[in-house]
């Protein structure tokens, strides 16, 4: 017993001595903070900051894939794209694509989130299934959609025929007709971004104290009044963040369009991101490509500032 106690005492003394000497740098929040932030800073500088500055530099030059020479061109590239009708078309398409798909995503996401919010048997399974499009690789999902939109074997066309919604002789070319092509890429974008929005909004709904919704019921509010006067205002900050994510994703991403239509037919689904890629990388004109993609930067920055301010203003708790 006595030896055991002595052992314990020694252990404690050792521990105290060690705590006094080694605890220093771990307790220094400034140093520890810098150390922990380090990897993230390196990552952002190397993979976001440097390419961004390189892009800015290229956009003022005549850089191209095939040449090692580089000259400062001032605003010439920007002036050139202003003259380019395809650029304006891509900009308009990008806005339509992002706005229509994101409005659909937010509305459908809210409805889905409300359905999933309720307790029911097998809810976890449904939640899992809804998340699947988000975890599937985008390009693989898009290739799947390529088959769904196939002009001959399309399951959509088959279903419409089977339900006698269109004439048997009528075979829409989903990705080949301008209006239908935009509709198709929007559909796929909604399919892809809906899970994320649903999960974000669901988190927002779950954060509303149940007592508040109960109080609204007792206070005489029916479903619509509860939805528009209590639930929606309370999830608004979260919904704005979901919307911001969606808009930025949709504006900057081109995988869906690259896989499904490559911007066609006749640039009907060409957006700025895809146009920049085709011009700069596939076309080899790095300078113009950089100018096209940079055009979006101030627009997206303004959108982000706007939404974050709105979200903060709508925040209540």
């Amino acid at each position: 017993m006595a030896t055991h106690l002595a052992g314990t005492h020694r252990m404690l003394a050792d521990w105290r001595a060690r705590a006094r000497t080694t605890g220093r740098w771990r307790d220094d929040e400034a140093k520890l903070g810098a150390l922990l932030l380090g990897p993230a800073v390196v990552y952002i500088v190397a993979l976001v900051g440097f390419p961004f500055l390189l892009g800015v530099f290229y956009s003022f030059s005549d850089a191209s894939v095939g040449s090692t020479s580089l000259h400062f061109m001032g605003l010439q590239n920007y002036a050139a794209i202003m003259e380019d009708p395809t650029f304006w078309r891509s900009l308009r398409n990008a806005v339509v694509f992002a706005l229509v798909s994101q409005i659909l995503v937010v509305v459908l996401g809210k409805i889905l989130a409300m359905a999933l919010y309720r307790e029911f048997r097998g809810r976890w399974l449904i939640r899992l299934l809804i998340l699947l499009p988000w975890v599937a690789p985008i390009s693989l999902g898009a290739i799947g959609w390529l088959w769904i939109f196939d002009p001959i074997y399309s399951i959509i066309t088959w279903t419409l025929h089977a339900l006698h919604l269109i004439a048997p002789t009528d075979t829409p070319v989903w990705l080949g007709q301008p209006g239908l092509a935009m509709l198709s890429v929007i559909t796929v974008d909604v399919w892809r971004l809906l899970p994320l929005a649903t999960v974000i909004i669901l988190a927002g709904l779950t954060a509303i104290p149940p007592d508040v919704l109960d109080a609204a019921q007792v206070d005489g509010a029916g479903f619509l009044r509860r939805l528009f006067l209590v639930q929606l205002p309370l999830v608004m900050p979260v919904m704005l963040v979901a919307l911001l994510f969606g808009i930025v994703f949709t504006f900057t991403d081109m995988i869906v369009i690259y896989v499904l239509t490559r911007g066609g037919p006749y640039d009907a689904t060409q957006v700025l991101a895809s146009y920049a890629y085709f011009t700069g990388v596939e076309g080899g004109d790095l300078a113009t490509g950089a100018a096209i993609s940079l055009f979006l930067f101030p627009v997206l920055a303004a959108i982000a500032v706007f939404f974050l301010t709105m979200a903060r203003r709508a925040e209540v708790v």
Binding site: D211, A215, V316
Partner: peptide, 9 residues
């Protein structure tokens, strides 16, 4: 309610 359940917004 115990939490008062005021509408926070």
């Amino acid at each position: 309610f115990q939490t008062y359940a005021l509408y926070p917004h």
